Simulated scan of single mutants.
Amino acid sequence: MSFDDLFAQHVASAMARQVALADLIGERNWSVDLSAGYATFGDDLRFAIQLLGTESHRDSTWLWAWANAESNLPPALLHLGGWLRDYGEQAGVAELTERSFPLERADGAKLALVASGLTGRPYYRGPYEGGALFFHLEGVPETPVAPERVITVLSQVIQTWPLPHRTVAGSFLTQQGWTLDESGGRMSARHPDGSTIEITFDEQGRIAQFGGQIKPR
């Protein structure tokens, strides 16, 4: 499987998770205590972390945390990264197994979104002088994407990245518990609460129109 395929399958659910995290954190300042293994947001939020890696803006490269031997990172914060590396080896996804590579190939946000899709955990990007640290947050409440938010998430994703729309939509809706029925250039989806979404694709497989009915809450 290619990294681009994996990204298309998981980006929408991961983006929805990031939107929910942003709603939770708001404008709080952040800090990380690597020795304790926690990230703190403001005065009232604290979550255990697992390190993903770092972006260097000096040479425009990504470095996985498990490969950052010079920083003597606590091994307890590298378990999730090791799991992702093992997954990459089994699935043949080089970006999850190579210790470092140029950001033009895959930047921290794309890597963290794939990791979020695979693990069900949101990530945080902590900027610092010369780069940024990416880490997963443990224990953040996970809630399914509300039906009324599905189209917003899909629209945001397809406007941000050039991706196969049918793969993105089908994967996202399935992951969120919708039942799909595909026929030709249409995709119909039904949510357990009775909400429906109709997606029409053009000849190039791009989303041309949304329809359906969302049940009021």
Rank of each mutant, 00 (worst) to 15 (best):
G194T: 05
F201M: 10
W62K: 07
R121V: 05
L51I: 07
D193L: 08
F47S: 00
V145W: 02
P102S: 04
L137E: 11
T40K: 15
Q159W: 08
K110M: 15
P216R: 14
E98L: 14
P144I: 07
S171L: 06
L137C: 12
T196P: 00
Q50V: 06
H57S: 02
H191G: 01
I207W: 11
T119E: 10
F3L: 03
L154P: 02
T179L: 07
A65H: 11
A208R: 14
D107P: 09
G92S: 00
L173K: 00
P162C: 12
G131V: 02
H10Y: 09
G26A: 14
L51F: 05
R121P: 03
I151W: 05
S195P: 01
A189P: 08
L84M: 00
V114Y: 15
D59I: 12
T200C: 12
G194I: 05
S13F: 02
F7H: 13
Y38G: 03
A115P: 01
D202Y: 02
E203M: 10
W178C: 01
V157D: 11
E203S: 15
V157Y: 13
P102Q: 04
I199C: 03
L103H: 07
G184R: 07
H191V: 04
S155R: 01
F3K: 02
V19W: 10
V145C: 04
G212P: 05
P164F: 08
P75V: 15
S188H: 15
L6N: 06
D33M: 01
S2P: 01
G139C: 09
P122T: 05
A36T: 14
Q159R: 12
G194Q: 05
L34I: 04
V150A: 14
R99V: 07
S155H: 00
H165T: 12
P162G: 13
R190V: 13
D86P: 06
P144H: 02
T97A: 12
P144N: 04
L34M: 05
A169R: 13
G92D: 02
S183Q: 14
G53P: 09
Q176F: 00
T167K: 14
P74I: 10
I214C: 12
W161C: 09
A94C: 03
P192G: 10
R85I: 00
E70C: 08
I197K: 03
V140A: 11
E95D: 02
R121D: 09
A208H: 12
G211P: 00
F134R: 07
P162E: 15
K215H: 11
F101P: 00
S2C: 00
L137T: 11
L21E: 00
A189Y: 00
P127C: 13
N68G: 01
T174R: 06
Q209A: 15
